[in-house]
């Protein structure tokens, strides 16, 4: 197993765009080739070697294909578009981490910026920390956000998690900001703690499951439907357990189900886990 390890030498003065830093690109490259990869720092075209120490070595089987070390909060687009392999960042990351990703796994040991996993189509993102706004969301003007894959954030997220997503699973262990699940077309957002206002606003289809209990600040366009123990939750629970983040709420828990947003047809649902 070969691992490419990049260690940040110094924080750039403005943000950098590092979409080249994915297993798809670095795989099979020598350290020198990786150093020569382009890196946009503000408006300057620089190289990976200008900002990182690069080591390529054989490592144990469990090691990732690409390991980044340092506080990468100024680096945007890490893991963007990756389709295979394992990438680990030991530190914070900037905007668009894992955006448009279609496969492989991206693990971030630190906080992530906005647009984490935006337009994601497949693969897995684990963030051990908080994430910003628009997790799994769609970019401006687009109709559809995340289309597949799984995102787990162990901390909290900002506003608009899952906005316009169509498929896939997002699990936020902590709290979520306003308008979680905004204009969702499908897929599942699980909020372990509490969502802020307007959860599920303009939902067309899909599910927002809230584990932190009620009361929820629901819009008037959501109506209580029933209380039940959905099989769907067993599937979600199983999937989250499989990626090592089984929710503390068990697979057989009952939920109160609210349907909405009636302005968009009312085929979405917000589920609130019941205690006990």
């Amino acid at each position: 197993m070969r691992t490419v390890t990049l260690t940040l030498k110094a924080e750039p003065p403005v943000s950098a765009e590092a979409e080249q830093l994915i297993p798809d690109v670095v795989a099979g490259k020598t350290a020198e080739e990786v150093r020569r990869l382009p890196l946009l720092v503000g408006n300057r075209r620089e190289t990976v070697g200008d900002w990182f120490d690069v080591v390529v070595d054989e490592a144990e089987a469990a090691a990732p294909d690409l390991l980044l070390r340092g506080d990468l909060v100024r680096f945007k687009r890490l893991g963007e578009g990756m389709s295979r392999g394992a990438m680990v960042v030991e530190g914070r990351v900037g905007f668009h981490a894992g955006a448009r990703m279609s496969g492989g796994s991206l693990t971030i040991a630190g906080d992530a910026g906005d647009f984490l996993g935006a337009h994601m189509a497949g693969g897995r993102i684990i963030v051990r920390g908080d994430a910003g706004h628009y997790v799994a969301a769609a970019y401006r003007g687009e109709k559809t956000g995340m289309k597949g894959g799984t995102i787990v954030v162990t901390g909290s997220v900002g506003q608009m998690v899952g906005a316009r997503m169509r498929r896939g699973l997002v699990y936020v262990q902590g709290d979520a900001g306003d308008v979680a699940g905004y204009n969702m077309k499908g897929g599942t957002v699980v909020v372990g703690g509490a969502p802020a206002a307007r959860v599920g606003a303009r939902m067309v289809r899909g599910t927002v499951a809230v584990l932190g209990g009620e009361p929820l600040e629901l819009l008037p366009t959501f109506s209580y439907a029933c209380t039940y123990a959905p099989t769907f939750w067993r599937v979600v629970h199983h999937e989250l357990a499989r990626v090592g983040h089984a929710p503390r709420v068990g697979p057989g828990v009952t939920f109160r189900r609210y349907c909405g947003d009636v302005n968009e047809g009312g085929r979405g649902e917000v589920l609130a886990a019941q205690p006990g």
């Binding site: 606003a201 629901l218 819009l219 008037p220 366009t221 959501f222 109506s223 209580y224 609210y258 909405g260 947003d261 009636v262 302005n263 009312g266």
Partner: peptide, 15 residues
Amino acid sequence: ATLLRALVAGKRIGI
């Protein structure tokens, strides 16, 4: 605004 949308279109509301 959400409520007004529902009321204008005569949709069933949950309050």
